[in-house]
Structure formats: structure tokens, C-alpha cells
Nucleic acid binder design. Structure first.
Length: 576
DNA sequence: TACTGGTGCGCG
DNA sequence: AAAGCGCGCACCAGTA
């Protein structure tokens, strides 16, 4: 089949008997329709993908794509109706009277989603409306039409199209990350646990070093039975022993000299490792040499991904040594240096900040420019500027930045002002912050009423400032998430273009699609890990930086901001 | 027994 | 006990 003759879009929907595919031409008009039995779907998609390479349109990527990946089928592009709806229905860039903004079955419902929740699609039952977006073809075609109208009518159709495409690419990548998994050395993980926590007693019970720390705490407190895991009980025991803390947080405990404190801090550290990433975590989440977390694209209001199960986005540094390439393979570990400040420079058009970032550590650039005295000051000040710090070291330093980078600061200050006034802010590509809650509005209007008390006013002011800090950060964090999606999407294409290796080094544990191929193995806001056959490691490392450059141009055109990466080719992801 | 809210800590 | 954003998860305690 020739490329030019194929449909630009293929919309998939469920029917009672199987799947129905509607082929649309580039203008969106339906040209044909075909019924496909469930067992034939993977083959049909694989054929269409290689013959026409359409953009696949479906109601929910994990439900369609996870089974395809399991059957060894990969697609290049999709349009995820659920994720796109969520963006368009609440974007300030879309006209208020656009049909996509009306109440519908596509509105968020059914809670967080991930590829763990796939089975409903291939059961014959109708999925209850509350469980998620509709899976049938007619609903998909109607929603696609509404979305295309909304995009065309939006303030900047080019940006909105880019955002929806990037979000959808993210959905594909999340499913692929889950399918491929992060190479995980369970034996190394076990060694780390045993080293840190001590041997596990054969008869069960806490490991040796954890038990020893607990014993020392109880002895120092003179309370042989006190529970260290119950905050109220521990707090009372500390008070009885004369440690007058208001909480049991590490931060506050560390300021006291009592002999119970060092072993208690030790205990908390070990107990944390044990409960968050201990042997039971290993048992539950690592199988076949892979950690397969469930990623939730768009799971955070700002557009960042969330994760569900396994705590994928909280991999403790302590355990990074357990991330280990397969034999004959390498890891490319790359993280963006100061992503959010660079994004802020770009969206505000602040040439001074962009200059401080160019070709170097951005914080060092701020020091070189004589704005602040040292790197740690620069870092704390810039974070404070983006988060809305008003006091402490950070708040104290922000005015210096305001003088040096007036445009960047004006942008975040304005975002905060809008938020405090109950308004909506948007990212560079057009994702909007949620409106204030009714409770928030009530609080504000009560405070402006004639009979408002001082307490009403200060409470309202506090909540207004809280919201201002949220919207201040939203524009930066949200745009950084968009840049990261563009980075991932571009990198994914570059990796897929590399020739697969075969034979003993094919790494079948990565599943049928990724066998022998470089693939993304982890994504963490501003960091990626690529798992690659050793022969492609250098090329993959170059691709990671080239994709970052491409993402910068895609979002910000010729604005002179660069996105510098720290890239390492290694066998483990352990931090130096 | 199942839930919700608070606390604390890990990550960016 | 964070100051200063966004998360997920484990655990406990109180309630239904």
C-alpha cells in the first residue's frame, strides 16, 4: 500500500462484537469503516501502521495500547481523547462557548488512570459511565469533532495542537515505559537492604539494625515498650523524657541534644527505607528483572505526570544502585540542569536570565553576573522566586533577583497576582490552572463584606496568598512539563530509529517491542534513563541532548535559551 | 471492616 | 518546623 493513499487518522471504538475502525482523511471526513475481531486487532493495527502510519484516535491510551504492546505492536502517533478533553475543556485559550467545554461523559471521572486498569475494555460488559470516558466509536468521532473545532477556535491553534499532540505522545510513552520497565537488580537491592537494615531474623520480625536502633531509643527514653511508629505515643514519650518538641519530625528533633535523638533519627531513616522500599516492595514491584511502575500522564494539575503504585517518582537515591543495565547493555542517565529557571527565562523573554544560563550552570551564571555571592544563594533565591518565598534566606534574596531579572520576575509576580484575585493562569502552550473552589470564593467574599471580622480578613488574605503561590508556580512547572513532553517525544522517535541488535544481547526481558532496541526506561520530571544495547550507547546519549535542543526550538523558536543536560553512560543509575 | 484525616518523609 | 511549589505512600488514630 502506498503512503499517500492512506487515511491520516484512524479512530478506534468498541462495539459488541469487537472493534470498529473509522478511517478519516486529512480534513477529518470519514472515508471508510471496518469491523475487526478482537483477536485480529493487533495484526490490523500493525499493518495499518506500516502502510499508512496514521494518527490513532482512541478514548484512553492505556486501554488500547497496553494490549497492543503486549502483542509486539508499536504505534508512532496517537490522539488521546480523554487527556485532550481534560486540557481543552478547562483551557482559557478555548472559547467559553465551545462544545468541548460543556458537561459530558468525557469530564474527569473514575479517578486516576493507568495501564494497570486495562481489563474493562476487552470485557463484553458496558463500562458504567462513571468509570471513565466512553469507548464506543460514535462517541469518539463526536468528541474528536468537538476537540478539533475547539483547537481551531482557540487563541493559538498551533500551540494547542502541539500541546494535545505532546500530551498524547506522553500517553504512548507512559504505556511503553510500563511495558519495558526499568532494569532492576533485585540481588543488589537485597544487598543494600541487608547492609543498611541488617540481617532479617529467620523467624520474622524487624531486621537487626532496625531492631537495635529501636532498642537504643527505648532505652534512652526509659520506656521499654513505647511504639516508635505512632506519632502521638512517641511524642508523649519524648515529652516524658524531657524532649519538648512540638512534632516528631526529623527537622525539629535534630535541634535537641537528648541521647534518644540520634538513635531515633537513625530508626526513622531505617524504618522509612523498610516500609517504602523494603523487601515487601521488592517482592511486589520487581519481577523478571524489571520495575514496572504505573505512570499517570497529566496526573498533576500542572500537567506533570503522577504515578500510581510503586512510588515510581520517588525512587530514593539510596536504591539507585539497584537500577542496573542488562548484560551487554548500558544506561544513559540524563537530567536537565535547572529546567524550571530556563523555562522561566524563555516564557518571560528575559534575555539576562537566558544569558546567565547559556552554556553553563545557571546558578553559576547568576554569580558570574554579580547578582548574588555564591551558587547556593543563587539557587535558594531562584527557587524562592518561583515558589513565592516571602521570608527566610530565600525571601531575603528575592529582591536582588527582581533587580537583575525584571522580566522573569514580573512574569511570576503577575501570575501570583492573578491567582490571588481568583483568576486563571496558563502555561506557554495553553494548559490552564483550575478555577478557585467555591469555598475559596466564599472566604474572599465574606472578607470583603461589611460585617467581616479581622479574623475573616486575615484568613482570606492567607488563602489568597496560598493560591497566588500556586498560580505563580503553575506557569513555570506546567511549561517545564510541556518542554519535558516534547523532549521525551522527540527522543522516543530518535531511539526507535536505531537498528535493533539480535542474538544473546537482545534483552528479551524488555518485552516483544523493545527486544534488542534502545528504549526509555524511566522518566522523572526532568530526568530520563535510556536502556540501550552497548553499541548504541553513544548514539543514545547524543540523541538525548539533540532531543532537548529540538524541544527547546519546538516550544520557544529562536529565543536564545539552551537546555543543558548532565548525561552519563553507565551500568547503574547510582548517583556519584 | 472500611473509610478519612493527620503526620512524616521520599522525590522533582 | 518550615520558610516556598507539586506529588505518592505508609502508618496510625478516630470514626462509621
Amino acid at each position: 500500500m502506498d503512503d499517500a493513499g492512506g487515511p491520516g487518522w484512524v479512530v478506534l471504538g468498541r462495539s459488541r462484537a469487537g472493534v470498529v475502525a473509522a478511517m478519516l482523511d486529512a480534513s477529518g471526513a470519514e472515508v471508510s469503516r471496518e469491523s475487526i475481531a478482537d483477536q485480529g486487532l493487533a495484526g490490523w493495527v500493525a499493518h495499518a501502521e506500516s502502510a499508512w502510519g496514521p494518527r490513532w484516535v482512541w478514548h484512553d491510551t492505556p486501554q488500547w495500547y497496553a494490549p497492543l504492546l503486549a502483542d509486539g505492536v508499536r504505534v508512532a502517533r496517537c490522539h488521546d481523547l480523554r487527556l485532550s478533553h481534560a486540557i481543552l475543556a478547562s483551557s482559557a485559550a478555548v472559547p467559553a462557548d465551545a462544545a468541548v467545554r460543556g458537561a459530558s461523559a468525557w469530564d474527569a471521572s473514575g479517578g486516576p488512570r493507568g495501564e494497570g486498569r486495562a481489563p474493562a475494555l476487552f470485557e463484553l460488559e458496558d463500562v458504567p459511565a462513571s468509570a471513565g470516558p466512553p469507548a464506543n466509536l460514535e462517541a469518539a468521532l463526536e468528541e474528536l469533532q468537538r476537540q478539533q473545532v475547539a483547537i481551531a477556535a482557540s487563541a493559538d491553534p498551533g500551540r494547542m495542537r502541539l500541546l494535545v499532540a505532546a500530551e498524547s505522545a506522553g500517553a504512548l510513552i507512559a504505556a511503553e515505559l510500563h511495558a519495558a520497565g526499568l532494569p532492576w537488580d533485585a540481588a543488589e537491592h537485597d544487598r543494600i537492604l541487608t547492609d543498611v537494615l541488617g540481617e532479617r531474623p529467620p523467624g520474622g520480625g524487624p531486621p537487626a539494625k532496625l531492631a537495635a536502633a529501636a532498642a537504643r531509643v527505648r532505652e534512652s527514653l526509659g520506656d521499654p515498650a513505647v511504639s516508635l511508629d505512632s506519632q502521638p505515643k512517641l511524642l508523649r514519650a519524648l515529652h516524658r523524657a524531657g524532649v519538648l518538641v512540638e512534632s516528631t519530625s526529623r527537622w525539629e528533633l535534630a535541634r535537641h541534644r537528648h541521647p534518644a535523638v540520634p538513635p531515633l533519627l537513625e530508626y526513622k531513616k531505617l524504618a522509612r527505607l523498610q516500609s517504602a522500599n523494603g523487601w515487601s516492595w521488592l517482592e511486589e514491584w520487581v519481577a523478571g528483572g524489571r520495575f514496572r511502575p504505573v505512570y499517570v500522564p497529566g496526573g498533576v494539575v500542572t500537567g506533570r505526570w503522577a504515578s500510581s503504585g510503586g512510588g515510581a517518582l520517588q525512587l530514593p537515591r539510596q536504591l539507585r544502585a539497584a537500577v542496573r543495565a542488562d548484560p551487554g547493555w548500558r544506561l544513559v542517565v540524563a537530567d536537565v540542569a535547572q529546567l524550571e529557571p530556563r523555562v522561566l527565562a524563555a516564557i518571560s523573554g528575559d534575555l539576562s536570565l537566558a544569558e546567565a544560563a547559556r552554556g553553563r550552570d545557571l546558578y553559576a551564571g547568576i554569580v558570574d553576573g554579580g547578582v548574588l555571592a555564591d551558587r547556593s544563594e543563587a539557587k535558594v533565591a531562584l527557587l524562592g522566586a518561583m515558589y513565592g518565598a516571602t521570608s527566610g534566606d530565600s525571601g531575603r534574596l528575592v529582591p536582588r533577583l527582581r533587580r537583575a531579572f525584571p522580566r522573569a520576575m514580573a512574569l511570576v509576580d503577575e501570575a501570583a497576582r492573578v491567582g490571588e484575585d481568583g483568576g486563571t493562569v496558563s502555561t506557554w502552550l495553553g494548559r490552564s490552572s483550575p478555577p478557585p473552589t467555591q469555598a475559596w470564593r466564599d472566604l474572599q467574599s465574606r472578607a470583603t463584606g461589611a460585617d467581616a471580622s479581622d479574623a475573616d480578613e486575615s484568613r482570606a488574605r492567607r488563602h489568597a496568598r496560598d493560591r497566588g503561590r500556586f498560580t505563580r508556580n503553575f506557569v513555570v512547572q506546567g511549561t517545564a512539563a510541556e518542554w519535558a513532553l516534547a523532549w521525551l517525544a522527540d527522543l522516543r522517535i530518535r531511539l526507535a530509529a536505531m537498528s535493533p541488535v539480535d542474538g544473546a544481547d537482545a534483552a528479551p526481558r524488555s518485552g516483544p517491542v523493545f527486544q534488542g532496541r534502545p528504549h526509555l526506561a524511566l522518566f522523572l520530571h526532568d530526568e530520563v534513563i535510556v536502556h540501550t544495547p552497548a553499541v548504541h550507547a553513544d548514539a543514545a546519549a547524543r540523541a538525548v541532548q539533540e532531543a532537548a535542543d529540538a524541544a527547546g526550538r519546538l516550544l520557544f523558536g529562536t529565543f536564545p535559551i539552551d537546555f543543558r543536560l548532565d548525561v552519563r553512560i553507565t551500568d547503574t543509575a547510582a548517583k556519584d
